[in-house]
Amino acid sequence: MNKLKAGIIGTGNIGCDLLVKIQNSSLLNCTLFMGRNLDSKGMRFANSLGVKVSDKSINALIENPDLCDIVFDATTASSHILHAPILKNLGKFAIDLTPSLIGKMCVPIVNGEECINENNVNMITCGGQATVPLVNAVSNILDDVDYIEIAASISSNSAGPGTRANIDEFTQTTKMALEKFSKTKNAKAIIILNPAEPPIIMHNTIYIKSSDYNIEKIKKAVYDIEEKMQSYIKGYKIINEPVIQNDTLVIMVQVEGNGDYLPKYSGNLDIITSSAVKMAEMFALRRQGCLIK
């Protein structure tokens, strides 16, 4: 089976974790790892895996457009604003892991099929990837949803300089995603950084307010999502059973990372990279289907 050719722009922790996940995929192969400094830790890591690297960032792809079919952008929102039109012109499927929000908001198990037809998809935020699948599934079986709130706690160690400098974007973007993928236009997102040692594993609590709950149906939907999510992020785990407290549905989910390149506690980063790779695999499968036809 021919693997789809994938490029990565951005050689930080996210880029490296994507690289490991892509190289472990039966559908993808990393053919170009792009950054600015051949001496960086990430570049040396990619080199050690025998992956083609370049310090010309996106220019490497402009010079050699046939090297990739899919491009993951793990740089920054302001860089992606520059990269997006270039990738579009080159006809590449862009998977954006920055908070730029240029492309369609993408949660693979929720709207992955629709996203395949886009040329640029955005992976929202870690809090979004962790909670939107549950929020969406539960919202679909409730008659009405008055309010949704999520609280995501992550370890300080796993919040890189980008997240820390842009906590406002995280909060606003996650809220937008909750509203987009549910029946309410009244959502709130909270993020808390915890510096405890050993680092805490990403913990999310979802609160949903509705006029009526069928808890058995909800539980089934919740555990169904847990199983689907575990197909691409093993450490996605519902902790404690969903309960109704003070007329509010409470669901808690913990996300432990796979430990591919990043430490296991940084499930918040892993869920974004895993979701991005899952999206790429869905795209690859569709592409193969087309080729077979």
Binding site: A151, S153, I200, H203, T205, I239, N240
Partner: peptide
């Protein structure tokens, strides 16, 4: 009151987990 446990135990346990302001969801947990 809901889970019939000693509130002091909850506090001591939260202290061990080094929870910070905002992590009120950990109380139920």
């Amino acid at each position: 009151a809901i889970y019939n446990v000693d509130p002091r135990d909850i506090f001591m346990e939260l202290g061990k987990l080094k929870v910070v302001g905002g992590q009120e969801d950990m109380i139920i947990d």
